[in-house]
Amino acid sequence: MTLIVFGSAIADFVFRMPHLPRAGETVLGEAGAALPGGKGLNQAIAAARDGGDAHFIGCVGRDANGAMLRATALASGVDVTGLREVEEATGLACVCVDAEGHNQIAVSLGANRRAEAARIAAIPPGATLLMQMEVPPAENAALIASGRRAGARILLNLAPAAGLPPEALRALDLLILNESEAAWIGAQLGQPGHAGSLHAALGIGVAVTEGERGVTAVTGEGVLHLPAHRVAVVDTVGAGDAWCGVLAAGLDRGMPLEAAMRRANAAGALACTKHGAAPAMPHAAEIDALLSRS
């Protein structure tokens, strides 16, 4: 099968500090060299490392950060034929991580604003599409419509939370959110922000990741809740992207939702045990090992 990830590629500058800054506060910390990130690239790498046939569609600048992101994706087995170079600078993120692994992230989208759904010339029937919200929402909406016409499976990680037309949301197979994103879209729909109410309002599958409490998914087949794995947290950057990428890879290989969610839960937990975003995406053998101990 084919997994097409349409989304962002961003160079992350990670600042490690004793606590996250409050409004108006300056906190001293340590930062290293730029690391590969961006929700789209992270998810494509997570899928490829778990054995998925991942094709990444997005934009980077003609600069050193763009070259670094392309090289990282290639080294992880991602097809980057659809990763286009544009004149705008590669997207950047400032990632602040405290001593307990919690994070705050500020993003400059840069070249990601030039991502175009029309660059995907053909969507094979039965393919899986995975999207996030660090590219223009109108492009996501266009790709959702194209994917539905092509008979693809369509997954959207509504991160960061942003609006899409109701018809685009209702055309999804699965909407993936964390708790704050679920609360946001729930408010837009006049509904409580949990998986059951969002499923009822939109008529689609909804999965809400709940941090240490695990994940709850509600589909037409019922409710699935899986607990989180207990791990020693280094930082939580990229955990949601690992979850989304591995889930999409599993579904694309024909796994039932529950089995794909179990792999995704393990992947998200493993991402918390390493520094960074894309570098923390686990490999299939690591996922298998954690599942075998659970």
Rank of each mutant, 00 (worst) to 15 (best):
284 A>E: 12
242 A>H: 06
125 P>D: 06
131 M>F: 01
230 R>K: 15
84 R>F: 01
256 P>G: 12
42 N>S: 14
180 S>F: 12
289 A>Q: 11
269 A>V: 12
148 R>F: 01
98 D>N: 14
125 P>G: 05
237 V>I: 13
88 E>L: 10
25 E>A: 12
237 V>A: 14
11 A>D: 07
64 A>T: 13
256 P>S: 10
12 D>E: 11
192 P>C: 09
223 V>P: 00
262 R>P: 01
293 R>C: 07
153 R>W: 05
63 D>K: 03
132 Q>E: 12
242 A>N: 09
90 T>F: 00
143 L>R: 00
150 A>T: 10
252 D>N: 15
46 A>G: 13
147 G>S: 04
228 A>C: 07
53 D>P: 02
13 F>G: 04
49 R>E: 12
279 P>Y: 07
201 A>C: 13
281 M>P: 09
256 P>A: 14
253 R>H: 14
231 V>K: 07
251 L>S: 04
153 R>N: 08
76 S>D: 15
176 I>C: 09
201 A>H: 08
120 I>E: 00
188 Q>P: 02
161 A>H: 04
137 P>I: 13
19 H>K: 11
177 L>V: 14
89 A>P: 14
110 G>S: 06
208 V>K: 06
266 A>R: 06
170 R>M: 06
220 G>W: 07
4 I>F: 09
160 P>W: 08
206 V>H: 08
207 A>Q: 06
82 G>R: 06
161 A>D: 05
128 T>W: 04
76 S>C: 15
265 N>L: 11
24 G>W: 12
264 A>P: 08
74 L>Y: 01
180 S>E: 13
68 M>H: 03
139 E>H: 01
290 L>H: 06
82 G>P: 01
290 L>N: 07
246 V>N: 05
3 L>N: 05
281 M>Y: 04
210 E>N: 06
266 A>L: 11
266 A>C: 13
207 A>H: 02
165 P>I: 08
18 P>D: 15
150 A>E: 10
260 A>Q: 09
245 G>S: 08
183 A>G: 10
93 A>Q: 08
38 G>I: 10
144 I>E: 00
28 L>N: 06
262 R>M: 09
287 I>T: 07
77 G>T: 09
108 S>C: 12
268 G>H: 08
186 G>Y: 12
86 V>C: 11
223 V>Q: 14
136 P>W: 10
246 V>E: 04
185 I>T: 05
66 G>T: 09
68 M>G: 05
16 R>P: 01
281 M>I: 13
233 V>I: 15
252 D>L: 00
232 A>F: 03
290 L>R: 05
74 L>E: 15
100 E>Q: 14
112 N>I: 07
292 S>T: 14
137 P>G: 12
277 A>F: 08
19 H>S: 13
177 L>A: 10
131 M>Q: 03
226 L>A: 06
136 P>S: 05
213 R>L: 15
157 N>G: 03
167 E>W: 00
160 P>L: 12
292 S>K: 12
182 A>R: 04
102 H>T: 06
14 V>L: 15
29 G>W: 11
248 A>Q: 02
94 C>L: 15
98 D>R: 07
187 A>D: 15
111 A>G: 05
52 G>E: 11
66 G>W: 03
78 V>T: 02
37 G>N: 08
286 E>M: 11
272 C>Q: 10
25 E>R: 03
165 P>T: 07
